[in-house]
């Protein structure tokens, strides 16, 4: 054994010896004046001191092994468990928040999309309606134009027919007038006849 290892051992032994010695000395000379009660024990306290030391050491040994060390371990592991739980909860919380923002974003996107779709649909509808109205107007226009043209044509035909008829009537009338040198009454009758013919 080296000197370095002997010195502490000697010191500790010396300390223990001094300690025990001082207890013994103190207890031997403990106050002996209190003895009013015959049962009060004021004899050497050395025995109680040694008994206390023995109890302390044995009790500490037992409690250290079966109570304090396991309790310290249990408290540590509980503390660690709580810390882990808190960390896990924080992680879960941040995950949830992230998920929430993702969903919020998706929801916002979907909202925008829906609005776009509705807007598009509205625009389509409006365009379609405009187209239909335009088409209808065009159709109406062309129909009107056709009707006008037909009316014009019919008018022209009628006029032509009238002209032809009146020409032929006039020619016939003229022929008859020329052929028959008749009186005024006959003349009037002829004209009336021609007019009624024309009316028919």
């Amino acid at each position: 054994m080296t000197l370095k290892r002997i010195i502490p051992v000697v010191f500790v032994l010396l300390l223990c010896a001094i300690s025990v010695g001082s207890v013994l000395a103190a207890s031997e000379h403990a106050a002996e004046h209190v003895a009013g009660d015959p049962l009060a024990y004021d004899g050497p306290k050395r025995d109680l001191a040694l008994w206390s030391l023995v109890i302390f050491l044995i009790l500490f040994g037992i409690l250290y092994k079966f109570a304090f060390a396991p309790i310290a371990k249990a408290l540590d592991s509980r503390e660690q468990g709580i810390a882990e739980n808190i960390a896990a909860a924080e992680r879960a919380n941040s995950d949830a928040k992230e998920l929430l923002t993702q969903y919020q974003k998706k929801l916002d996107d979907a909202d925008g999309e829906v609005r776009q779709i509705v807007d598009d649909a509205k625009a389509d509808g409006r365009r379609m309606a405009d187209g239909i109205v335009e088409q209808a107007r065009k159709a109406a226009d062309s129909q009107q134009k056709r009707a006008i043209a037909e009316i014009d044509a019919a008018t022209t035909n009628a006029l032509q027919e009238l002209a032809e008829k009146s020409a032929s009537l006039a020619a016939g009338l003229a022929g008859r007038i020329i052929r028959k040198e008749i009186d005024v009454n006959a003349h009037r009758d002829l004209v009336n006849e021609a007019i009624s013919n024309l009316k028919n």
């Binding site: 207890v23 103190a26 207890s27 403990a30 306290k45 050395r46 109680l48 001191a49 206390s52 030391l53 302390f56």
Partner: peptide, 8 residues
Amino acid sequence: SIATTLVL
């Protein structure tokens, strides 16, 4: 008792 406390 001082004996007990002294030991402690």
